[in-house]
Amino acid sequence: MTLGTTPSQTVGPYLAIGLPWPDGPDVVPEGTPGRLRLYGRVLDGAGDPIGDALIETWQADPDGKFGTAFRGFGRCATDEEGAWEVFTLKPGRLGDGQAPHVDVNVFARGMLNRCVTRIYFADEDNTGDPVLESVPEARRTTLVARPDADGYRFDVYLQGERETVFFKV
């Protein structure tokens, strides 16, 4: 017997009441060796920042393992500039040939469902990654975070010319 699943609904405009955690962005606490900053903005189809979105991240530990003491999970609400940040360790390469990556959920008012994307790293060897290879080449760059003075930058474009690649899970 298969039960019918409960449908998804939007998080609405008031997610800030229930979802942010004080330590949400700290996948690892301050002072952890190797701690890096993943950051960016969430923008709508007009290029305007989305100030009521929530980003969640889920990833393997630096050895490419799950189910270890590493929390692996980050959560950050966007501010009025659409900006978010998460402090974490770089995930390792997985045993099945996948390059280091972070799975991402995007929630916001006006979205009936979460949007799912992935972050890869520009300073890693991403060749041969089966998921990246399933994406049309011209759009792959939307999945790659670029290192700069402030961390690794990853902007999410929900629509438009630079629309981020989103996945059906």
Binding site: G67, G72, Q98, R118, S134, Q159, V165, F166
Partner: peptide, 26 residues
Amino acid sequence: YKSTALRHPKQQLIALPHRLTEVSGP
């Protein structure tokens, strides 16, 4: 639901096979 207009992807979603990252969770 008016706010969906500028906040939904217009490109086709790409199927993500369920690999280790997807079948695990916090």
